Computed example of a mutant assay.
Amino acid sequence: MSRTLQLAEQLISRPSVTPEDAGCQQIIGERLAQLGFTLETIESGPADFRVTNLWAVRRPANATAATATKTLVFAGHTDVVPTGPVEQWTSHPFTPTHRDGKLYGRGACDMKTSVAAFVVSIEEFLKATPEPKLTLALLLTSDEEGPGIDGTVVVCNALAARGETIDYCIVGEPTAVQRCGDMIKNGRRGTMSGKLTVNGVQGHIAYPHLAKNPVHALAPALAELVAINAAGWWDAGNAYFQPTSWQISNFHSGTGASNVIPGSAVVDFNFRFSTESTPESLQKRVHAVLDAHGVDYTLAWTVGGLPFLTTPGELVASVQAAIADETGIQTELSTSGGTSDARFIAKICKQVVELGPVNASIHKIDEHIDVAEIETLKNIYKRTLERLEASLAR
């Protein structure tokens, strides 16, 4: 059994459903402390949803936060999503199990194997290069799968407040499609949600002149918003991003009775937007459509994250070369998919990429990873460290 696999199994066996860390960060911290890392635990959140965050850093000898040449951060999370019905799993979700060359367990892909690969890649790198010029750090949270308000964002705010800088960051989210290394994320779309409440007047359905149907009032405006989205008129995207997309997630109205005109209608919707749009530009356009149709409404907006993009540079080149050297794959750069904690890190770090295992089974019953790809992932991380270190020596 490889050391990466052994650590991955140790972490998977901990039932760390958000916001629980279940001792995962302690296991990792003890190994990093032996390598000369300074450990800082930052807890956040209310008593009934306490989040554990770990910031571990190892600077070159005689260096300070102000004098270190370059800092690379491995970032990830030790929390996992709920298992779902345990009886539907072929083996217990928190008992690491091998079948047909695969490792099964909740978190096998998302993302305890990545975290294990972080740690072992650092151990092997430091064994070969005991005094690197590179500052190494690990940022872990137990609130990535939850609300995300007491996790990585809290650590990033603390680092920014004390003037610490990050030059490179690799987030271990599962990004591969068929094989480890075939796709990495060098950016993500922004996310913004809206809760639209349309005001009407409730009444008997047989006397519509005494009521005001909010669904009828909204329908023409809603049809126009749907048409804008279908035509791709929010924006055209660009070389790195798909066009901005708008989707309705929920529509609520009525009392449940068939003879009552509803007094209000509530629509939840979400934008996934490119760098060609801003929250303000999208909000302005939605309000313009609603106002043009004379809709009586209130609209509450929530910006979940801004889009970010790491254009090809030192980090992207190092990761691409590491993947090619280890696997022979010419990796694909992508900004597709949902959001991740990279959106918080990108505010204090200009070069952020996401690189992890195949994502086909994440959040599913019988989540798993190919055992053969565990060492591949660790080696890609290690090769990236070696390349960034070599760039500092030049």
Rank of each mutant, 00 (worst) to 15 (best):
Q351F: 13
V177M: 10
S121C: 02
T95I: 14
F241G: 11
A116L: 10
L218E: 08
V286I: 15
E224M: 12
Q320H: 15
P19T: 02
G76L: 04
L218V: 11
A137H: 04
I170T: 05
Q88L: 15
E124C: 11
P60G: 13
V319F: 08
R394D: 13
Y207D: 01
I28P: 01
G294Q: 03
L35E: 07
G151T: 05
H363C: 03
Q247L: 09
T197M: 06
E145A: 05
D325N: 07
R59I: 11
N359S: 10
F241S: 10
Q34C: 14
F241A: 11
I323N: 00
L103E: 04
A137L: 08
V153A: 14
N238W: 15
A300L: 01
Y207F: 07
E276Q: 15
K350P: 01
T95F: 10
G305A: 02
A33P: 10
T69L: 13
G337V: 12
V319T: 00
K284C: 00
N199I: 01
L139G: 08
S281A: 08
R285H: 10
W55M: 04
L5R: 15
V353S: 07
Q202C: 00
M192P: 04
W55C: 02
V266K: 05
V371K: 11
T310G: 09
R285E: 12
Q25I: 04
I369R: 03
G313R: 14
K102Q: 09
C24W: 09
R272A: 01
P15H: 13
A158R: 09
G163S: 09
Y381S: 00
V319K: 08
G356Q: 08
